[in-house]
Design a protein around this nucleic acid. Sequence first.
DNA 1: CTTGATCCTCTAGTGGCTAGAGGATGCATG
DNA 2: CATGCATCCTCTAGCCACTAGAGGATCAAG
Lengths: 130, 130
Amino acid sequence: MTLSIGLLAKAADVKVPTIRFYEEIGLLPEPQRAANDRRVYDVGAVRRLAFIRHARQLGFSVEAIRNLLDLSDNPERPCGEANALAARQLDDVEAKIAQLETLRGELRRMVAATCDGRAADCRVIEALAG
Amino acid sequence: MTLSIGLLAKAADVKVPTIRFYEEIGLLPEPQRAANDRRVYDVGAVRRLAFIRHARQLGFSVEAIRNLLDLSDNPERPCGEANALAARQLDDVEAKIAQLETLRGELRRMVAATCDGRAADCRVIEALAG
DNA sequence: CTTGATCCTCTAGTGGCTAGAGGATGCATG
DNA sequence: CATGCATCCTCTAGCCACTAGAGGATCAAG
């Protein structure tokens, strides 16, 4: 059972050009080509692409994903690196959340003080200026 | 009292090329030039740049900041737009926080299940693949 | 046989800067 | 007054992870 790029895209819920892009940067291997030069994928490609997509959704960079795929491709290697990557990613996410919560606080104060007059007296503008 | 671009950068805690960039995209007006062609700023530029910097830190896009600056420049205009922008920004931030909290949960599970064996049995890899 | 979807390659654009080349000027020290 | 280093100028290119579009070939359905 083989898939066209369009079917692969649907199967992994990724856009077609994104697949070509991942191939270009080496996250996906160059697939076989049919006689008409079209890319032909197998089920392994769906798994790999889903892996990438999931990792991207978790905020892993392409570089991190490259490492994770590398480990996934070499199951006999120790997985310390994968743990480290996940831990670092968790740190990043927690830092981002903390920062966004600060922003949320400030924005809430701005929004709560909503004014209906002229910009001259606008709390939002004021908050940004001050 | 006037400032060089370097002093303005220090005063507003922004890098020099960023100032030139903001000028290029029209967030900052073209400043006067000294005889030697160097940019010369006044105190108003510090306020404007600080406004921009603060808004960027809050996650406002350049387009949103353009609108906010426009309002700030025309204080007789109603400030409904500023309120709307702030509200939208707050929504965005809250959505981002919610998404990141989901990711955090997943990453925490991955990290908690840390394994010390081979990648073949790695929970992190497994979680990404599954 | 025609229509519309899908595929191909290639180039350029997005946002918000950042880095670097290559050169002119300014300021402090010897 | 010379030296050397900081700062300034313009311009181009790069970052990340895609996305959009041109221009053309091929395919499947009616």
